[in-house]
């Protein structure tokens, strides 16, 4: 498969599902996402039941703590990165390897921007005294949002590995599915963030 030379004309309509391996990967990532949804659902449920819970006389509540502007900017970073990932997949279907690489890198950059803001946010909270061990609320918050952040890091490392590993050899039916499932995974992370934005930040500020 590696050595077959393609042109945009001979390149298949669904390059991610042509080989058995590609098809397995494609089905596999969806199955994995099913279980990841349950993982996040459990964390969300825990967070909702522990929100604003803490020892007697706890200092921080979600209303005082969260600021929507920062969360909004983070949301924009991640939503845009989903868009660039879609563009990368568009180029994948059209056998435009340069486009795939470029837009995947753009996705990575936007993801890094998101991550930097999240790190800043966490640093800020810890700095003002809202540390991981401060209350049940703080533990639940950092665990939920941090797990999402960990997913982001994994996604970034994954995409970077793909971009560098394949830089010199172009698209083929072996690596096309890899780009494709990484993109699906990235969209999933994005969707989870939308829920975090709603449940943690929006509902947190509105009370």
């Amino acid at each position: 498969m590696l050595d077959t030379k393609f042109t945009p004309q001979t390149w298949p309509e669904h390059p991610e599902q042509v080989t058995q391996e590609g098809k397995n990967k494609y089905v596999g990532i969806w199955i994995f996402i099913c279980s990841d949804i349950v993982l996040f659902a459990s964390l969300f449920a825990t967070y909702i039941s522990l929100r604003n819970r803490g020892p007697a006389g706890m200092e921080f509540t979600s209303q005082e703590l969260f600021e929507l502007p920062l969360a909004f900017v983070m949301t924009m970073f991640l939503l845009t990165s989903s868009l660039t990932s879609v563009i990368a997949m568009y180029h994948l279907k059209n056998y435009n390897f340069k486009g795939v690489q470029l837009w995947t890198l753009a996705t990575v950059l936007l993801g890094l921007g998101f991550l930097a803001l999240e790190i800043y946010e966490f640093y800020h909270y810890v700095h003002i005294g809202f540390g991981y061990t401060q209350s049940a609320f703080s533990s639940a918050f950092f665990t939920l949002v941090g797990t999402h952040g960990l997913h982001v890091i994994i996604g970034l490392v994954w995409m970077l590995c793909l971009v560098f590993r394949n830089a010199k050899r172009g698209l083929n039916l072996y690596n096309a599915p890899k780009y494709f499932v990484a993109s699906i995974y990235w969209h999933f992370i994005d969707v989870v963030w939308v829920f975090i934005f709603t449940v943690v930040y929006l509902m947190g500020v509105l009370g």
Binding site: L50, R53, G54, P55, M58, Y132, A136, F137, S139, T143
Partner: peptide, 18 residues
């Protein structure tokens, strides 16, 4: 794990856990 090893408070009711 984090409750026992890293002092989180998920299950410590004196810290708001349940």
């Amino acid at each position: 794990l984090v409750d026992r090893m890293f002092d989180a408070n998920f299950f410590d009711h004196t810290m708001g856990g349940n």
